[in-house]
Design a protein around this nucleic acid. Sequence first.
DNA 1: CGCGTGATTGAAAAGCATCAACCCAAGTGG
DNA 2: CCACTTGGGTTGATGCTTTTCAATCACGCG
Lengths: 241, 241
Amino acid sequence: MPNAFIRKLEGFGLLSEEHKTLLEDVSSSPRLVEADTDLISEGDKPEDVQLIMEGLAVRYKVSRAGDRQIFAYLVAGDFCDLHVALLRRMDHSIGTLTPCQVVRIPNASVLKLVEGSTMLARAFWWCTLVDEAILREWLVNVGGRPAEQRIAHLFCELHARLKAVGRTADGSFHLPLSQAELADTVGMSNVHVNRTLMALKDAGLVTFRGHVVTVPDTAKLEAFAEFDPSYLHRDRQLAPA
Amino acid sequence: MPNAFIRKLEGFGLLSEEHKTLLEDVSSSPRLVEADTDLISEGDKPEDVQLIMEGLAVRYKVSRAGDRQIFAYLVAGDFCDLHVALLRRMDHSIGTLTPCQVVRIPNASVLKLVEGSTMLARAFWWCTLVDEAILREWLVNVGGRPAEQRIAHLFCELHARLKAVGRTADGSFHLPLSQAELADTVGMSNVHVNRTLMALKDAGLVTFRGHVVTVPDTAKLEAFAEFDPSYLHRDRQLAPA
DNA sequence: CGCGTGATTGAAAAGCATCAACCCAAGTGG
DNA sequence: CCACTTGGGTTGATGCTTTTCAATCACGCG
């Protein structure tokens, strides 16, 4: 049974058996990291790249004033820090929100993998590009949208992304975040996040209770949030080789 | 005399003469595009990648309400849309702010270039990663920082980036933006941008008049903005091959 | 049962947007 | 050569959004 990482890469096209074995080899024997722990911190220059096999982690940065901005959620199959294989120095931190299964892969192995296969190189590059597209949309979100639309839009995105990997059930999905962590994501205070969530619930658009997001009417929520999923680039058609 | 594009790539390491000729060939005979023109629009599926040889352009998206969010400034030597070589469909638009010299390169040529040279592949991937790092910092900026620090931080970044390519003079640099375009960048209203700029001037931190930014005391401004340039990854040391 | 973390509520203040003028300099056309 | 236009930039007044501070509530856990 292929793990989440391999399943993700398979979405890009054929992987040879050889590659699968290679990848399976490299992504075996994860270690368990408990919740609220940094996997890697700003300024680190690690020799390994890390890969989340299970759990939820976030990219973030903290300002001197102490407030945290979250850039991305990392789920099963996501690279933590593919960057460092090239950039060497981490310019932000990555921390777990829940207990996570994590594997380490030496930088050199990653680079060798990439250089040994055009297919893999493209797949990895593709991941980077999609991450960047999501980041752009997040900037639109915090830069322009009012509070209710902002949170609604985030929920739409997560719904779409999790649905694509079979992690939704009947319009609801699990999201192990506190309201404060949600606030750090959308650039609002925790208090206002709370009020906004209640307004969204009263409007019948979404609820977020007990780490579960429930969307009664997806189309309605997406219309409200002006959500257009095309930035997620889910049509994974690679350019002709 | 190498053009801006080649000069940029040379920063990553040795380019063979063969590569230089190839690149020079591919980046020759630019066309002139006037100001305030879209080079490419959201939804396009172009067959070419575009490259800015001269002038200033921006990545942006407009919401239904009509407000624009700017994601990135593109200057000489920047790829407009390297993404589309892989992702095919543009998820945002790119427009000129000033008249620009632009060249088109067929997607296929780009992919061939990348696959023909590990060095180039890394250099391109590197560019993507740095763009992403900048995007993250912009998210921190609009997500968390108050108005004055927000604009100050942007100016610090631009100062650092332009200084690196020799486009600053004595603590000042050219920035052909209107205040409204600046507002679209930092997610504020044009009115508030105006007031903030005046506050920054009164505080003796920066001035922005006639498309010129002047920083009397760089260290002072950077301290005020809590600017840490490490996210720009200016130490262009590639990982060992 | 007591404690701690996260959620919820209220009141007050700050920050920012909006609207509406007005100014100023650089065209443009008669 | 001047009246007119036009696109920023600047200013003031007003009100909404959001933050902050503080208190209270709910619930899981030792």
